[in-house]
Design a protein around this nucleic acid. Structure first.
Lengths: 147, 147
DNA sequence: ATAAGTGCAAAGGATTTGCGATGGG
DNA sequence: CCCATCGCAAATCCTTTGCACTTAT
């Protein structure tokens, strides 16, 4: 794990424990969205002894700290992914097989578009937008050829 | 319930039962996203005797039929809303109190923007987009003044 | 030293499932 | 009539919690 995390934890008055260390490391290595169970499995595979409850507690903590964000794919489990996953990306979810494809932002247009919406919502609803997620549903390449 | 639904059910070879009738009716009346439990409560309030399992089974069925779509607000429950809720709208979710505000589409720009992405994804990932959801996270008017 | 963090097992809450009973087509 | 659908209760799955033990600071 990069040393930087130690600082991040300190700034939130959170202790730097082996469990936390290990969990962040998993996300850094996998570079993808993971469910609590998946994180737990990765830890076991690395011989790290961390209880599943600790995984849940820390995923929630990291989310509140802004290190992770929740993503929902409709499979009944919460998934988490690292937040500064630069650049901002979206998710394509196959309605048939459930596969999730991470897709990159398509460019400047997007930033402008959402910046505009953000202002609009502040005016219309007095709601201050901090972040957004976009989910696209449809059929993946494979499933298009068999339904 | 509008008579039209009878046709819709027929076209899917699904029977028109009092339970289904009643569930669709609830969504037509409430005109908002509802969890299974909320649908169940609405039915009880209307003296309709429908088991909770039937509610779950039909919400899932309606989703597969394209009548309802799932929306996720991060509260651990699945919510459903009617699909052709014209016009397309998005959700503003307060990170602090969990309130969900339905917000209308902001206009033509949006259609163009997403149409462009749709083409792009078809080319890049051979993924055919059928629909999309956008979730905005931040603070609602009330919560901005107390965190 | 001491409060935060952890592991385990039990509790909780949402959703699904098995199965005999019911009723729509 | 017969099979899809239903109601009920039990089962399952994911997540949270209580509590005694451990450990980072």
């Amino acid at each position: 794990m990069q040393e930087g995390w130690r600082e991040v934890f300190r700034s939130f008055n959170k202790r730097v424990t082996p469990s936390r260390y290990a969990i962040v490391e998993v996300f850094e290595e996998k570079k993808k969205h993971l469910s609590a169970e998946e994180v737990y499995e990765c830890l076991r595979a690395k011989k790290k002894k961390v209880g599943i409850a600790t995984v849940y507690r820390n995923l929630d903590l990291f989310q509140r700290m802004g290190i992770l964000r929740k993503v929902h794919f409709g499979d009944g489990k919460e998934h988490y992914e690292m937040v500064p996953q630069t650049p901002q990306h979206h998710h394509l979810i196959c309605k048939r097989c459930g596969k999730v494809i991470d897709c990159e932002n398509t460019g400047r247009e997007e930033g402008e578009f959402f910046a505009h919406l953000k202002d609009d919502f502040a005016k219309r609803y007095r709601f201050s937008v901090e972040s957004y997620h976009v989910y696209f549903y449809g059929l993946c390449a494979y499933c298009q050829n068999k339904s």
